[in-house]
Design a protein around this nucleic acid. Structure first.
Lengths: 227, 227
DNA sequence: CAAGGAAACAATTTCGAAAACTGCGCCCCT
DNA sequence: AGGGGCGCAGTTTTCGAAATTGTTTCCTTG
């Protein structure tokens, strides 16, 4: 099967449109503030307007697009202010989740963190082209790693909020033009965090994680490209 | 104009359906787990299925309804487990927001808290029937009071999450059959919290707020009516 | 009699067109 | 020259019907 729309079992046009729109917004291919006319979207994604409206409504609920009654949708604007608010909030929420996770996590959780880090580091050494597997993109592995750290916090609600913030900051990262930033010291940071977490050193792990986010944020901010 | 659909300027059928559905779900008039067939909803709210689907999609993004591809929507189930997760998460997030609010809040914020409490207490003394004003229902005032406490945290994202959790727990409160619980000691608790907040005593305020939520949660849990 | 499969039914999802709304330019009037 | 209203083009929103999917029932078969 060549064309892979593989997510899980069921698919509707609305979900497909949702996924592709989300990808294009997070991936930076749809610039912040862009007006999203239905005619344009219909041509681009080859689905009717009903599924598109469904997708847009769902995206507006997670803050990826803005809705104005009777005036349609546009990609959520991006600003330096919003980015720092995003990072600040993310630090708060993930501190809570991480402390709780370290406090409550069992052996299975530790192993999950270990495996997630392993996959990420393997993908980091090998380039995207060499690395052929079922695991998904680097971003998928990155997301999986970060969420695995928090996964033992025993609140799927909090976990969902953190995932939402992850997606939002990922968009800012993709908007700034730092393509090969990936291999800088990120892997070192991820390893250090992993070690602190597995040592159950909550204070150290939290400080490392917050610094990880703040540094990334500052690089994005410094790269210009934001108002 | 007799019939007041007054929110603000613009209205679409989709927004109206969204509001009414949200009201009915939070108000407990649509029981958890209820299958939401479009035909039924069309008759009940007198709008076509396109606006209804829009409303349902938006509601699913904030966790009020569940969506299963190709199988439609149902009101999100309610369980004792989810309620305690909700309360736990809410305590974490509001602790963060409240501490930050107390740390950063200015005079305008203090006055906002004061006014919100005043309106709530006035509505508490007078019954709904006596009290005629532009302020909205008791629940509106209650929500406004709680959010005013957090409003200086300088993160509209966090504030939005807290509002979402408020709505979810409100649904559980309405599901349990404690009608006249309102006047028990709630006003006392609200006053005590207000005083601690205006004294800038973060530790005390947080402890009072968390206890406020936990006690309410336990009363709801004790009232039975949940699996 | 149980199991498998096809057909009818019920519900959701999607499409295409009509209706409603917004924004803008134009004209008229003062 | 300036201000206000009218109408037109473009877009969104909504509706009603068609297509798709899931479910049940009944018939056939081993």
């Amino acid at each position: 099967m060549p064309s892979a729309t593989a997510t899980n079992g069921r698919e509707t046009l609305a979900s497909i449109a949702y996924q592709r729109l989300l990808d294009d917004i997070v991936g930076g291919r749809l610039q912040p503030g862009t007006k999203l006319r239905l005619q344009f979207l219909t041509e681009r994604y080859e689905v009717g307007n009903s599924p598109l409206r469904e997708a847009l409504n769902r995206l507006s609920a997670i803050g990826m697009v803005q809705r104005e009654e009777n005036r349609g949708f546009r990609v959520s604007p991006a600003s330096a202010d919003e980015l720092s608010e995003l990072i600040r909030t993310r630090c708060w929420l993930e501190e809570t989740a991480l402390r709780e996770s370290i406090r409550r996590g069992d052996a299975a959780w530790e192993e999950g963190v270990l495996v997630a880090y392993h996959r990420l580091s393997k993908r980091n050494r090998l380039s995207d082209e060499q690395y052929v597997s079922f695991d998904g993109t680097w971003e998928d592995l990155h997301r999986a790693y970060h969420l695995s750290l928090l996964s033992a916090c025993d609140s799927s609600i909090l976990l969902g909020f953190c995932a939402q913030l992850h997606e939002q900051t990922l968009r800012y990262r993709n908007l700034s033009s730092m393509k090969d930033y990936r291999d800088r010291h990120e892997l070192d940071e991820h390893r250090t965090i992993r070690d602190a977490v597995l040592d159950r050193d909550a204070d150290a792990a939290v400080e490392l994680l917050r610094s990880h986010y703040r540094v990334t944020g500052e690089i994005v901010l410094a790269s210009g490209s934001l108002s």
